[in-house]
Design a protein around this nucleic acid. Structure first.
Length: 724
RNA sequence: GCGCCCGUAGCUCAGCUGGAUAGAGCGUCAGACUCCGGAUCUGAAGGCCGCGCGUUCGAAUCGCGCCGGGCGCACCA
């Protein structure tokens, strides 16, 4: 029986005993796992609070329950300890046998589809380490949900019509040539030439492996110069408005080459840029950055099912429909006077969460008639929940088209974008007649939005909108997975300035603070790909330091990659989500102690034991019929500790999902690795002469190895290398 | 001003729905098998769990009030 079922059965036994011995019912009996095995494997502390109610000493109660209970057969011994704890001891060999035989699929999920939205990087520059926190947390959530038996749809939202994309376009079209050329790493030249050179940097079709100097890196350089230029040149703001208008009007399916040609022609002739060509350029910029982001995340084994595009939400009238629903429900009103005159606002005054606010109204439609981001997000959220319905009851839906196909060689292997086989990554389109046979999107019974904590207020507004539209259960199923931002330690900032020669213009006061916020606008940050590259180089050095022979280059590259990914993912997972992650290079590049490589190393070592065993003794992992031979084997305390910890995976995963705290999972993995490393020294396998003892050790290490593969690779996306 | 988050060892952090001696890692100091990889392990030193009051048989954990730090409260996304 799985540990959780034993636990439940024992709890029921306690409840029944309370009824028969004291005629006491209604108690919620919960069993816990005591701090050490001398106190048993499961414990019931409930006799203590019952003492007053039952007017007996806690010890008396515990003893009476112990005597009256019909324990499940997995409980072999029961004792009362301390002030009145009831401690239960498990059949050790029995549990080990059960775990080795495999627990079978989980049946706790199956409530319907769960939608997880994560990554959501503005497609106007390279991803930085803050985006990695988002993507890694989101991806681990997806993995855990799937492990628990849920059907999960992963969405990566693309804001292809926002000001940030417009800013890059403004840079290309209007930034002084000298500055633009400098950002592009070129000698100053004419703008039409720069546009040509810029276009040459656009990636070709498909998603290509990430490398330095990609298109997103180019935009990383251009973007801060544009935001800086707005301060110097007031006319530039008007240009931005023009570009935004052009993007909103759309390009009508214009060909990119044609667009570039007409832009260059406009430069030469001095005519204004044609709107459709500007829009086409913006679309190309957004899409190119998106593909770069997909490539970055692919390195970390992160893939997606759908890329909803904001432009499609606009063009397909998602907001118009949401607006109608909100107006019919009386949730919004047009302000005729006051500071919000001419705006459509949603009143939050009636909901307790917003009760104490100075201004409990949130503007959804501006006085100029345009919709705010929060408005669009309400429409999108309704769609995700399957609640954005037209008058005829049909879902107000997108059109869909394949964007790419991807696969990975193992649960934590890099995502590879390939031809037509593998998992489908779809994108939304603005043509509803485009369908994908066999696929449907949205309509989640639960929706997680992985967005940093600074967006809590708009997220609450979105949830409230769902509620006032008459869907309180759906509002409760709309979960904002909030996490704190990634910032830089002052030491990290100094290092980046030294290395890149940049000057972020931070004051002495800034540098006194515990951390410095990253800022794409100012160019302050550590790019995701760059950091992964640094990690990989460091991993390579670490391997070389430790190895004796010469390592084949392919092998070396694979080992270094694996270690870099493991270090990064673990770093992101181990810290509790509501604490600011102050990024520090020394800490991030550590491979010893409480790190990803430590966990990987434990698995490598365990695997090595079996390799040597096969070689020298012809023995392997314990499986099949040999499991039966373990019956009745005495399991010493330290080995048992590891077995019991392995049994807790489902429990830990469930807790991690319920609390959205993957530090629990990280700690669990670390705990397993640590227990193993201790046993490694105390319980050698190869040198053990007694076959029975050797078999037990093989069995426990078999369990450990399998467990680590699941926890690291499947749940945390941390690859386990063959060697390191 | 209002709201949310954080405050645990010198440093970076765990501690799940309150439970039995507060845990890791880094750093410091002292050690380890002619060994299944030392990216390891063992040991030592190091804590009024920010402060106060309360609830409870029991509080790092729950409540209230302070203090310190961060982040929100846009016709930005």
């Amino acid at each position: 029986m799985p540990l959780q079922k034993i636990r439940t059965a024992a709890a029921e036994a306690v409840a029944a005993a309370l009824k028969s011995a004291f005629d006491h019912t209604g108690e919620r009996v919960a069993l816990e796992i005591p701090p050490n095995r001398a106190m048993g494997d499961l414990a019931w502390p409930g006799a203590l609070p019952l003492a007053r109610v039952l007017r007996r000493s806690p010890r008396q109660i515990a003893e009476a329950v112990a005597a009256a209970a019909q324990w499940p057969p997995e409980i072999t011994r029961v004792e009362v300890a301390g002030p009145g704890f009831l401690n239960l001891f498990l059949d050790r060999a029995g549990l080990l046998q059960h775990l080795l035989a495999g627990e079978g699929p989980d049946d706790t999920g199956a409530e319907g589809k769960v939608v997880v939205e994560h990554t959501n990087i503005n497609p106007n520059k390279a991803a930085h380490i803050g985006h990695l926190r988002n993507a890694v947390l989101g991806d681990i959530l997806v993995r855990c949900l799937r492990h628990l038996g849920h059907t999960v749809e992963v969405q990566n939202y693309v804001d292809d019509t926002g000001v940030q994309v417009a800013d890059v376009v403004v840079g290309i079209l209007y930034l002084p040539e000298i500055e633009l050329a400098a950002a592009m790493g070129l000698e100053p030249g004419r703008r039409d030439e720069l546009i040509t050179r810029f276009a040459e940097r656009l990636p070709g079709e498909g998603v290509h492996p990430a490398s330095t100097g990609d298109f997103d890196d180019l935009c990383w350089e251009v973007y801060p110069r544009v935001t800086g230029a707005y301060e110097d040149d007031p006319n530039l703001a008007a240009r931005r408005a023009e570009v935004l208008r052009a993007i909103e009007s759309g390009h009508g399916g214009m060909d990119l080459d044609e667009a570039l040609f007409s832009l260059e022609k406009a430069v030469v002739s001095g005519a204004p840029y044609p709107s459709r060509a500007v829009a086409r350029l913006a679309a190309a910029v957004a899409d190119a950055n998106l593909r770069c982001h997909l490539a970055t995340m692919a390195r970390l084994s992160i893939g997606y099912d759908l890329l909803p595009h904001e432009s499609d939400i606009l063009h397909l009238g998602f907001w118009d429909r949401a607006f109608e629903l909100l107006r019919e429900a009386g949730a919004i009103r047009l302000e005729s006077g006051g500071k919000n005159a001419g705006c459509w606002v949603m009143s939050l005054a009636d909901s307790p969460e917003f009760a104490d606010m100075d201004d409990p109204d949130k503007i959804l439609v501006r006085s100029n008639g345009t919709v705010t981001y929060t408005g669009k997000d309400i429409a999108y959220q309704l769609w995700k929940l399957g609640l954005l319905r037209d008058e005829d009851g049909a879902l107000h839906d997108f059109g869909y088209r394949p964007y790419a196909h991807w696969r990975r060689a193992g649960p934590a292997a890099p995502v590879e974008y390939c031809g037509r086989a593998g998992n489908l990554l779809a994108r939304t389109t603005n043509d509803r007649s485009e369908h994908l046979a066999g696929y449907s999107y949205g309509g989640g019974s639960r929706v997680y939005n992985v967005i940093d904590v600074r967006q809590s207020y708009p997220q609450k507004v979105v949830r409230e909108a769902v509620r006032v539209l008459g869907h309180p259960e759906a509002a409760d199923s709309s979960i904002h997975f909030a996490y704190e931002m990634v910032a830089l330690t002052p030491a990290a900032v100094r290092l980046i300035e030294e290395r890149t020669g940049a000057d972020f213009g931070l004051t002495a006061e800034d540098m006194e603070r515990p951390f410095v916020e990253m800022s794409g606008r100012r160019g302050i940050g550590v790019k995701a790909d760059e950091f992964l590259d640094i990690l990989t180089v460091r991993a390579r050095e670490a391997i070389e330091e430790r190895s004796e022979g010469i390592i084949d280059e392919d092998d070396m590259a694979e080992r270094a990659r694996t270690i870099a990914v493991g270090a990064l993912r673990y770093l992101m997972a181990r810290q509790s989500r509501n604490r600011v992650l102050a990024f520090d290079f020394d800490e991030a590049l550590a491979f010893e102690g409480d790190t990803g490589p430590y966990l990987q190393y434990s698995s490598v070592r365990a695997a090595k034991i079996f390799a040597k065993l096969r070689e020298r003794l012809g023995e392997g992992t314990v499986e099949g019929e040999e499991i039966g031979d373990l019956r009745g084997t005495e399991i010493p305390g330290d080995l048992w500790e590891l077995v019991l910890s392995c049994a807790r995976r489902r429990e830990v995963t469930g807790q991690a999902v319920a609390s959205l705290e993957f530090s629990l999972l990280a700690q669990h993995a670390h705990n397993l690795a640590q227990l193993f490393h201790k046993l490694y020294h105390a319980h050698p396998v190869l040198r053990e002469k007694d076959p029975g003892t050797r078999r037990l050790r093989r069995a426990v290490f078999t369990l450990f190895l399998g467990e680590m593969r699941v926890v690291l690779e499947e749940l945390m996306g941390i690859p386990v290398p063959e060697e390191m």
